[in-house]
Design a protein around this nucleic acid. Structure first.
Lengths: 241, 241
DNA sequence: GAACCATGGTGTCAGTTCGACACCATGTCA
DNA sequence: TGACATGGTGTCGAACTGACACCATGGTTC
């Protein structure tokens, strides 16, 4: 082991952080993004994405995986209950952080409506949901605006060819809620009849009761059927909307 | 600056490498992948992807960007003339490298047919092109098989919705060459007439003379028209094949 | 120079998919 | 009981997709 180790250590190492674009969907406010207010320099008091440095073991060797680091930061800084996590891209411009060379592995995460309880981090940082465009009423810290832009693009693209939108809704939902979600993310209106026809034709949604306590005709509720989806994928099916 | 720096340095840092899935297309052999034989432990004498550690400045701060590191490694280890480069994913499992904690930022790169002159690296490592399936006659070093798999998937997906395939061909090419490329990457036969109709309907290809010195009717040559593509994209066009 | 051979280049049609479009149903509340 | 808000349903023309076969061209061979 000692011999093996010689090679890598000739190089100085960058610090490595993870930063998360956490999306939530609210029926009234549409697609929202979680930002936290930084307490420390650099960019103290500025809004930024939740994130932090990847932790290594004390010997500087093992430690947490990148995904685990992202989940940990989300838990610590927002208390969010993450339904979906996906790595986006690694940002590594030499001067992106004034403290020195810091790489940021960017993640996109989704939480379900009604899992939006947000709390400040352990260090009492302030956290809030903000509409996706105009994140935080202005520019975010570091290159986080670019990260958000990439996250939005990825979410828009992926919503159309992967069944990830369900992770922004409660476990059961009405088709109109699903449609509103798609309209909010894709930023264009969809035809109700065409939308329903296509999504139901995929046979991915299972009926799950009806709405209660609404002041109008109660909608049928559906849940995303993971098993049906797995079966279909196995048979060569591709989600597409 | 000194004050700003305190925060980041409390954490031990991982080593960060870039590894490149370099694709080439040969009319006879189809899609190929460049691998190099490692000279040093770990995995000495095993085939691996070209790559190496990201270089920081002497003060451990600035240095090269990740893209630059990938290009530098490709140049140093293969002499390849890269036509396209795209970051794929960052691999960061705690034990993926026996030397300790090493993250790998994976890249996909494309070179044009006839830019395939490959030479060993400055340290005389051996390099070769290998068919994409069965890379190197067996398993590659580290988790490089997983990286290759991801690269292939990305190339297949992206070939259909972005005009990147042209980067695997000479600057001018016949439509049949382009079709063979698509067939090789997507692993399925395409209908000649439908293929020609669709690709030409996009108005992205400009005529560029005819083949010479072939023992049959000479094909019209085309080049990818970057400007036309930029114009179309600006007008809301999406490449799709 | 005629025949051969390899590849280049072309159009149609049926089946499917896509997008636009309007009205009745249901349940709560006033 | 009627108003109101949302749920839920079918058709049709246009556009697109995929399957399909033959002549053109130009160098090579005999």
């Amino acid at each position: 082991m000692t011999r093996l180790r010689t090679f890598a250590y000739e190089f100085p190492r960058p610090a490595v952080a993870v930063d998360c674009v956490l999306f939530g969907f609210d029926p009234e406010d549409g697609l929202r993004l979680l930002v936290i207010r930084r307490r420390q320099a650099p960019f103290a008091d500025r809004w930024a994405l939740p994130g932090g440095f990847v932790r290594l073991d004390a010997d500087g060797e093992g430690g947490e995986s990148l995904d685990d680091a992202a989940l940990r930061e989300l838990r610590e800084e927002t208390g969010a209950n993450v339904a979906y996590l996906e790595q986006l891209y690694t940002f590594g411009a030499p001067r992106r952080d004034p403290r020195g060379r810091v790489l940021s592995v960017a993640y996109m995460a989704l939480v379900r409506t009604r899992d939006h309880h947000v709390r400040g981090g352990d260090d009492a940082a302030e956290a809030k949901w903000t509409p996706v465009e105009r994140s935080g009423g202005g520019k975010l810290a570091f290159d986080h605006d670019a990260i958000v832009e990439l996250g939005v693009a990825r979410l828009q693209a992926k919503l159309r060819y992967a069944p990830i939108g369900f992770n922004l809704l409660p476990p059961t939902f009405a088709l109109s809620e699903l449609q509103r979600l798609y309209e909010a993310v894709l930023q264009r209106p969809l035809d109700k009849r065409n939308f329903r026809r296509r999504i139901l034709a995929m046979d991915l949604l299972a009926e799950a009761g009806r709405q209660e306590g609404v002041a109008h005709r109660a909608a049928t509720l559906y849940r995303f059927d993971e098993r049906a989806y797995a079966r279909l994928v196995h048979a060569g099916f591709n989600f597409e909307l």
